[in-house]
Design a binder for these strands. Structure first.
Length: 478
RNA sequence: GGCCUGUUCGACUAGGGGUUUAGGUCAUCGCCCUUUCACGGCGGUAACACGGGUUCGAAUCCCGUACAGGCUACCA
């Protein structure tokens, strides 16, 4: 049987990086085994609907490079893939459970439930439904229904230990006393996660449920439902959580958690994916930089760890730098076009590509190809005075002035010739060549940090360099 | 509180009875390269939570404790 896995988020409005990792592991598992990756939307909580959440989720997943084979928009043989469009199925199967005695109607009000839980807590007991409605007689049920009282459907939990095998954690055993008579169908007619999840995973022929560790404690309920329906359960793999630096569950309060935040900051999708893949998994080799495709060849569940991993932005930055290093300049150019136009820059693609190659090793984020390199596109408006005060000496200006004259005579404005000319000028003036380098850099770019000076000048061209040099000589004063 | 899960350098992790003076990467520190900033190279600091067992031998197996996280909704 071929592998079928799913990513089943609830549409909260954005894709959480933890969700991204869950989606990624499902995707990679599917790729590894030549299987199918499905997106299913779990929107059964009608009180928490968010406008545009689905579109946002799909576009973020697409940006991340994780296309799904079946799901909203693309369709597939087991649709619809949005749970709110499948309520009839859940209701029909819920009724089946009612009919064969695996579930019962519960008319308890939320007030009674609250009181019950408060009492249980005060008495030091675990909060659990007291099965008040389990043994209602047929007459009582009819009476309440006739009176139009709202009800929920709860599952009956038997008195036996539930065991299941987790692909990552091994054998898990849960005593029945720790399993609540879970609500399956809410009074608004919509299913809870537990019911919808089991029905859909079966209906969509999911073979491996790969999800976050937070679902581990409720898995016995799901196992029970598979039994009640007479279905074979899929395999389960519960992933360790992603954590904040204080080891709590990764949350919004302690930094960015939305994939779109990282996208907005200029992170490469390849880097984010590579980094997130390594949070809880590793290939067992010493190779660290992987493309999505390579990950799909290497990934497997047996190398997924058990303990939570802290989301460390510094390492993500390193991955970003590494991916930037190997990215084709033409791709980088395409990606930075918006930043280019934002800065009102008009330059030829050929010129920008030269800048990209020169800036490559000193850039950590894509927009920096523009923001750290503005002097390639516009003459400096001001000069780094702090650097000037450190590097300037009384003869600096006259040296630069002499250099300016000598550069005019160059046959070819290449980095070799520029360097050569600077040395000759220094020799002629009887000053140290080294002393001229930084002042020249500041005169040309305005700042003291940047790429190889002579290469930078070559790219800029003779006209621009002479203009800037002249302006610097005339305007910089100690 | 109860249940479940986890615990190797600051972080991500390798290692799953002798191959280990516990390896790699990020971060950090030092040196080299470089008359800038980076990149790169070399090196350093730095970890098996604790206590019992099993064994000739335990980071590795078992038990307990501690700590951490998750779950405990008509949320997912």
């Amino acid at each position: 049987m071929s592998v079928r896995v799913r990513f089943a988020p609830s549409p909260t409005g954005y894709l959480h990086v933890g969700g991204l990792r869950t989606a990624l592991y499902n995707y990679l598992f599917a790729k590894k085994h030549g299987g199918t990756f499905i997106l299913r939307i779990e929107d059964t909580d009608r009180t928490r609907l968010v406008q545009g959440a689905l579109e946002n989720l799909v576009s973020t997943l697409t940006w991340s490079g994780l296309p799904f084979d079946e799901g909203p928009g693309v369709g597939g043989p087991h649709g619809p893939y949005i749970q709110s469009e499948r309520t009839e199925l859940y209701q029909r199967l819920g009724k089946e459970l009612l009919d064969n005695g695996h579930a019962y109607k519960c008319f308890c009000t939320s007030e009674r439930l609250d009181d019950m839980r408060n009492y249980q807590q005060r008495m030091g007991q675990p909060p659990r439904y007291d099965k008040f409605c389990e043994h209602l007689s047929a007459a009582e049920i009819k009476e309440k229904e006739d009176a139009g009282l709202p009800y929920v459907v709860r599952m009956k939990v038997p008195e036996r230990t539930i065991r299941f095998h987790d692909e990552i954690r091994g054998l898990i055993e849960i005593e029945p006393s720790n399993i609540d008579d879970q609500v399956l169908l809410k009074s608004d007619g919509f299913p809870t996660y537990h019911l919808a999840n089991v029905i859909d995973d079966h209906d969509m022929e999911i073979t491996h449920v790969i999800r976050g560790e937070e679902w581990l404690p409720s898995t016995p309920k799901h196992i029970l439902l598979y039994e009640y329906f007479g279905w074979t359960p899929p395999k389960f793999a519960h992933l360790p959580l992603l954590l904040n630096s204080d080891r709590s569950k990764l949350s919004k309060r302690q930094g960015d958690v939305a994939v779109e935040d990282y996208k907005a900051k200029g992170y490469e999708r390849e880097a984010l994916i590579n980094f997130v893949a390594f949070l809880g998994w590793n290939p067992g080799s010493e190779k660290e930089i992987y493309s999505l495709q390579e990950l799909g060849q290497e990934f497997d569940l047996d190398r997924v760890g058990k303990s939570g991993a802290i989301f460390n932005v510094e390492k993500l930055n390193w991955f970003n730098q590494q991916h930037l290093k190997v990215k084709p300049a033409a791709d980088i150019l395409e990606q930075i076009r918006p930043v280019i136009s934002e800065h009102g820059i008009t330059a030829s693609d050929e010129f920008i590509i030269k800048v990209i190659e020169l800036m490559r090793d000193r850039v950590n984020f894509l927009p920096e190809f523009v923001t750290f390199a503005l002097y390639f596109y516009q003459d400096p408006k001001e000069y780094d005075m702090e650097a000037i005060s450190k590097k300037w000496n009384p003869e600096t200006l006259s040296s630069l002035s002499a250099l300016n004259e000598n550069l005019k005579n160059l046959e070819n404005f290449t980095h070799e010739q520029i360097e050569n000319q600077l040395k000759l000028t220094a020799e002629m003036l009887g000053v140290k060549a080294g002393g001229m380098v930084q002042p020249l850099r500041i005169a040309i770019s305005g700042v003291s940090a940047g790429p190889a000076l002579y290469m930078m000048m070559e790219i800029l061209g003779i006209e621009t360099c002479l203009r800037r040099l002249e302006k610097a000589v005339n305007s910089i004063k100690l």
